[in-house]
C-alpha cells in the first residue's frame, strides 16, 4: 500500500474511518443514546471530509474587503463551508427528533436498551 498516498489523503482517510465507526454504532449498538452519538459521528465525519476538500493551503476565508481588493484566487472554496453549515442544521434537527423519541420511550419503558423496549412493546401488544 502506498503510504505516501495515504498520508496525503489523511483527512479523507480519517473521515472514512470515523464514518465507519458512526455507521456501525448507529446500526449495531442497542443503547439509544449511543445510537444518536453514532449518528453524530457519521455526520461529523462527512463534514470533516467536505471541509478538508474545500480547504486550499495558503488561502484565506472568502470574505471580500470593502474596497474589493482581494482577488478570487486568495480565497478557499466557499461552497463546502456553506454545505457544512446547512448539513449541521439538518443534523441538529435530526438529533433533536431522535432525542425526543428517546425521552418518550424512556418515560414509558424506563430503559434505553432497544431490544428490551422491543420486548416490552411486544408484551404490551399481547395484553
Amino acid at each position: 500500500m502506498d503510504l505516501h498516498l495515504l498520508l496525503e489523503n489523511r483527512l479523507a482517510a480519517a473521515a472514512i474511518i470515523l464514518f465507519g465507526i458512526g455507521l456501525t454504532t448507529l446500526l449495531l449498538n442497542r443503547n439509544l443514546i449511543k445510537k444518536i452519538i453514532g449518528f453524530s459521528f457519521m455526520d461529523s465525519a462527512i463534514f470533516l471530509f467536505l471541509t478538508s476538500e474545500g480547504y486550499i493551503g495558503g488561502r484565506t476565508a472568502p470574505i471580500q474587503l470593502p474596497d474589493g481588493s482581494m482577488p478570487a484566487s486568495a480565497f478557499v472554496d466557499p461552497i463546502p463551508a456553506g454545505l457544512v453549515l446547512t448539513g449541521i442544521v439538518v443534523s441538529v434537527s435530526v438529533t433533536a427528533l431522535m432525542l425526543s423519541l428517546t425521552v418518550r420511550l424512556y418515560q414509558r419503558y424506563h430503559t434505553l436498551d432497544l431490544d428490551e423496549i422491543a420486548q416490552l412493546v411486544r408484551k404490551e401488544g399481547e395484553k
Partner: peptide
C-alpha cells in the same frame, strides 16, 4: 409505545 418504537426503527435505518 408501538408507534414510538416503529418511529425509532424508521429513523435508524433512514439515517
Amino acid at each position: 409505545g408501538r408507534a414510538l418504537m416503529a418511529g425509532m426503527r424508521y429513523m435508524v435505518l433512514n439515517l
